[in-house]
C-alpha cells in the first residue's frame, strides 16, 4: 500500500503533544525514496503510452493518476511533518528561552538546530530595534501589580547577578524578595516559584 510510511511519520508526531519526538531521519529518507520511485515509474509509463497508441483499451492513464496521487500525498505528509515540528520549535523559543535543554536539543535535526539559532537571532535583532533601547518582549506578559515580588527557588541555580550589581546565591528552597522584572524570566523557566 502507498504512503504507509508517511502516515506513520504523521502519526508519530500527533501522539506527542507539547514535545518533539526525535527527528526520524530513517523514515523521512524512506518516504523520499518511495516518492522518487513512484515518479520514475510514472515517467516510464508516460513514455510507453505516448509511443504506443495501439493498445487504447488498456490505457495506462489511470495507473499514472493513482501514482501521482500517492506522490502528492507523500509530499503533503513530509511538508506537514517538518512544518509542524518547526511550529513547535518556535513555541519552545518563547517558553524555554534562547537555550534549549540538552535532551530536547538531541531530538532535533541539524537543520532544525540551525533554524532555531537563526530564529533566536532574528528575534533578538527585532527586540533590539524597538524604541531607543529595545524591548524584551518575553517579559511582562501580564500587567505587573507591584515592583517587588516574593519567590521561592526550586533548584540549585547558583549565583545570579542583579541589575544593580549585587550577587545573590540561589539555593534550593531559599526565599527571595526581588524586583519583578528581573525574576520573570526565571519564573517562566521554572527556576523560581512566585509566592503570593
Amino acid at each position: 500500500m502507498f504512503c504507509e510510511k508517511a502516515y506513520t511519520l504523521i502519526k508519530e508526531l500527533s501522539r506527542s503533544e507539547d514535545t518533539l519526538p526525535p527527528y526520524n531521519t530513517e523514515l523521512v529518507t524512506a518516504v523520499i525514496n518511495e516518492t522518487k520511485h513512484l515518479r520514475d515509474q510514472n515517467e516510464e509509463d508516460a513514455h510507453t503510452s505516448n509511443n504506443d497508441d495501439s493498445n487504447a483499451g488498456t490505457s495506462l492513464l489511470p495507473t499514472v493518476r493513482i501514482r501521482h496521487a500517492a506522490v502528492k500525498r507523500n509530499v503533503r505528509c513530509l511538508l506537514a511533518y517538518h512544518y509542524n515540528r518547526i511550529r513547535c520549535l518556535r513555541t519552545m523559543r518563547w517558553e524555554f528561552g534562547s537555550i534549549l535543554p540538552a535532551d530536547i536539543k538531541s531530538n532535533l535535526s541539524a537543520s532544525e538546530i540551525e533554524w532555531f539559532s537563526r530564529y533566536s537571532r532574528t528575534l533578538a535583532a527585532y527586540m533590539r530595534s524597538i524604541g531607543e533601547e529595545g524591548v524584551n518582549l518575553a517579559v511582562d506578559l501580564r500587567p505587573p501589580k507591584a515592583m517587588y515580588i516574593e519567590v521561592r527557588c526550586l533548584t540549585d541555580y547558583g549565583k545570579f547577578e542583579l541589575n544593580d550589581g549585587s550577587v545573590i546565591l540561589l539555593k534550593k528552597d531559599s526565599r527571595h524578595y526581588l524586583p519583578r522584572a528581573e525574576c520573570e524570566e526565571l519564573i517562566r523557566q521554572g527556576v523560581f516559584q512566585h509566592i503570593d
Binding site: T91, E95, F96, R142, E184, Q189, G190, D196
Partner: peptide, 19 residues
Amino acid sequence: QSGVTMEAANMVVNHKKRK
C-alpha cells in the same frame, strides 16, 4: 483569585514532569 500569579511556561512544566 484575581491577583495574577506568574507561572512557569506550559512546555517547561511538562518537560520537568516527564523528566
